[in-house]
Design a protein around this nucleic acid. Structure first.
Length: 414
RNA sequence: CGGGAGAUGGCAGAGCGGUUGAAUGCACUGGUCUUGAAAACCAGCGAGGGUCAUACCUCCGGGAGUUCGAAUCUCCCUCUCCCGGCCA
């Protein structure tokens, strides 16, 4: 959630920043007006409440002194009605306010480029040269003879966009997970294992709800959902907590399966395992003081990028433009790995700084002296395991149709 | 899934329906003392809103109700713990 106080004081600057994310300034005016209306209404209500409280306290005294309490009683009964009416008004305003506020995306950082979609993203760095092949490299689904990925049976078990990994593909996946977790741990991220099912409050806090319920798998009959990313449980670990300054920064890494309905992606990447309803991902999440989050952000990008490089995978770093930025992100850098079969770069990791957007929703704060200050939360894929496997298959393929293995994974495959 | 107990401040743990945002202990912070530390003693110490700052309002799991007044009474929900069953 954006800072409503700041919105009232700094309307123009926030509105212009949010234009980069294509947020209608009328919506923001409405939000500002709602906030003001609520404040006004609360003043009315609180005045009545103060009166009620003060006069109620007179009763014991009156009784002791043997004064008449009947008229006081009647007066307060009347005031009580008035309070109920104003209370209802305040609640309505509150509901209307949070209806808007929870659906307004985060404010982009000032160095986020303007732009509509991914075509306007800015490449900021290339790492490793694109490999050359003496033959035409195949796409990752063209290795039937290796009995690696079974798409048909995945569909039989579940539905489309599920698949089964077998033999060396399954082993490499497991090796990758272990390798990534070890790599991240060496960079200072504490390993955590979390639930794959979370409640509504958790998804509200990280921003998947209320707006994106259609993208989530919900457990029937329960107010519980399959996680779309480990970012949700990891960040929510500290929901409603006030941290000590010396606990920060908190840096965590976790492997989980992730579940996404991908409701809006019909027709995209229907072939292969680029876009699945279930995929493995090793995630990084950090919780920092506001003044440290830029530094940690860079560390997280470097961690993911170095990890890819250590696997010998050519990739580039891309700074997302406003239009391509996610709902909760103030700034995002994507890592795109080179896929020789597709002859293009594809997203394999995404690191975002949400500033205090999630912290405000999740009420994660730390004690700065006497004051409680909202933390900054950051998240990033270390790497999407499935896509990483694809990248290895395509980049390490040999002319005879077999696959080599990245040097660093060998210890994990013995 | 069946039976029982409970939900209060960072933790532990009190709280006749009335000036209790809440005793007490621990933890924490500041001070005295000490060469330093410990101990002891003194003081402070929940959160949100609101205000220049006060006032003031809200919050004792969540919601509804009784009452002039509820942490305290009633109802519903949720969650936690213990016992039994089932189970990786």
């Amino acid at each position: 959630m954006i800072d409503l106080k700041a919105l009232q004081n700094d309307f123009d600057s926030i509105a212009s920043k949010l234009q980069k994310k294509n947020v209608d300034s009328e919506l923001l005016s409405a939000l500002k007006e709602q906030a003001l209306a609520l404040k006004t209404q609360k003043a009315v209500l609180e005045k009545l409440q103060a009166e009620q409280n003060a006069k109620s306290k007179l009763f014991p005294q009156y009784q002791k002194e043997g004064k008449d309490i009947a008229s006081l009683k009647a007066e307060l009964a009347e005031n009580k009605q008035a309070i109920a009416i104003e209370q209802d008004k305040a609640r309505e305003l509150e509901a209307a306010l949070s209806d808007i506020a929870l659906n307004v995306p985060n404010i982009p950082d000032s160095d986020v480029p303007a732009g509509l979609d991914e075509d306007d993203n800015i490449e900021i760095k290339k790492v490793l040269d694109i490999p050359t092949f003496s033959f035409t490299p195949k796409e990752h689904w063209d290795f039937e003879e290796l009995d690696f990925i079974d798409f048909e049976r995945g569909v039989k078990l579940s539905k489309s966009r599920f698949c089964v990994l077998k033999n060396d593909a399954a082993r490499i996946e497991r090796a990758l997970i272990n390798y990534m977790l070890d790599f991240n741990r060496a960079r200072g991220f504490a390993e955590v294992s979390v639930p794959y099912i979370v409640n509504r409050d958790s998804l509200m806090a990280t921003g998947q709800l209320p707006k994106f319920e259609d993208d989530l798998f919900k457990i029937e009959g329960e107010e519980l959902f399959l996680i779309p990313t480990a970012e949700v449980p990891l960040t929510n670990l500290y929901r409603d907590e006030i941290l000590k300054e010396e606990e920060l920064p908190i840096m965590m890494t976790s492997f989980t399966a992730c579940f996404r309905k991908e409701a809006g992606s019909a027709g995209r990447d229907t072939r292969g395992m680029i876009r699945q309803h279930q995929f493995g991902k090793v995630e990084l999440v950090s919780i920092t003081k506001p003044q440290d989050s830029d530094k940690i952000f860079q560390e997280m990008v470097a961690c993911a990028s170095d990890l890819l490089a250590s696997l010998g995978l050519a990739h580039r770093q891309v700074l997302l433009c406003g239009g391509d930025l996610g709902f909760g992100a103030a700034k995002t850098i994507d890592l795109e790995v080179w896929l020789p079969g597709q002859n293009r770069y594809r997203e394999i990791s995404s690191v975002s700084n949400t500033r205090d957007f999630q912290a405000r929703r999740a009420l994660i704060r730390y004690k700065d002296g006497k004051k409680n200050v909202l933390v900054n939360t950051l998240n990033g894929s270390s790497l999407a395991v499935g896509r990483c496997l694809i990248a290895i298959i395509e980049n390490y393929q040999k002319e005879d149709g077999t696959i080599a293995v990245p040097e660093v994974l060998k210890p994990y495959l013995s």
